[in-house]
């Protein structure tokens, strides 16, 4: 069977951009569904998360949505949305948006709340207006956690977009469900491999963007890398204490019930 998978994966016709049922076209479709849903979910959930995080009003919404989002099976949610809204591209997109909102909202909220009270107090104390506190202080420090949510939402959406094919649309799910129906296992496994690679690549892209967006001062890079200006004496006075540089930075978005990644489809 493995030879079949390899020859399917290496078959040049499967990689021609013009081929409707080729990997290139299916990947573009797949990314199209995913990106649309992710952008809509972001536009809805991110500002709401900022607002709830900054004011701490409506926190129960953010927390409960996150918990419910983790316990609800993705497949069931998608099927229920389709049963209510109907079948087609729009219902599938709605279902994906519904899945992507909780992780984005919850982590944006959690990221904002995780910013040290002293930092926010200082921002207010030096005379920042509320919107300046949100965008110049809270958000830049919340990014590591917020990105955890964005990456998680992206992964869920990319994984779940597979279901578009289950209800007759395109995307990489076509290889899985067509292959299962035809008992063409090389096709199934080849599709699964391309899907897995796509997921890893999407995550990688997000992690690169995260590196560009997040300040080295908050994600631990600053305490790890070679110190700039470390040749200079620490201070003019003697007896200055030495900073304790943690060997490993804390893992932002690590484990904590409110920030933990959610795994789905």
């Amino acid at each position: 069977m493995n030879d079949g998978i390899l020859s399917f994966l290496l078959d040049a016709t499967n990689w021609q951009p013009g081929n409707n049922d080729g990997f290139v076209n299916r990947t573009i479709e797949h990314l199209g569904y995913s990106a649309t849903a992710l952008v809509i979910a972001f536009v809805v959930a991110f500002p709401l998360g900022l607002l709830i995080g900054h004011t701490n009003r409506g926190a129960f919404l953010a927390i409960n949505l996150g918990n419910a989002g983790r316990a609800l099976p993705t497949l069931g949610v998608v099927m229920l949305v389709l049963a209510i809204v109907g079948v087609g591209l729009t219902p599938v997109t709605v279902a994906l948006v519904v899945l992507a909102i909780p992780p984005i909202l919850t982590t944006t909220y959690a990221g904002m709340r995780a910013v040290s009270g002293a930092t926010v107090d200082a921002a207010r104390g030096v005379g920042m207006k509320e919107w300046q506190i949100v965008f110049q202080v809270e958000l830049p420090n919340a990014w590591p956690i917020v990105f955890g949510g964005l990456r998680n939402a992206a992964l869920q959406v990319v994984s779940t977009a597979t279901l578009a094919a289950y209800v007759g649309l395109g995307g990489l799910g076509r290889y899985l469900f067509d292959g299962l129906a035809l008992r063409d296992y090389p096709r199934v496994v080849a599709g699964a491999i391309v899907l897995a690679v796509l997921a890893v690549v999407v995550d990688l892209v997000f992690s690169l963007v995260q590196r560009l967006v997040v300040s080295p001062g908050v994600d631990g890079r600053a305490s790890r890398g070679p110190r700039r200006g470390s040749n200079a004496p620490a201070a003019l006075t003697a007896s200055e204490d030495v900073p304790d540089v943690a060997d490993d930075a804390p893992t932002p978005g690590g484990v904590g019930m409110d920030k933990a990644p959610r795994k789905s489809l």
Binding site: I5, L155, A192, I193, A199, L265
Partner: peptide
């Protein structure tokens, strides 16, 4: 660990037999 966690479950269910 994080790479494994990234792989969609459906893809892993289907790729494991191979």
């Amino acid at each position: 660990s994080s790479v494994i966690y990234t792989i969609p479950s459906l893809a892993l269910f289907l790729a494991l037999p191979a």
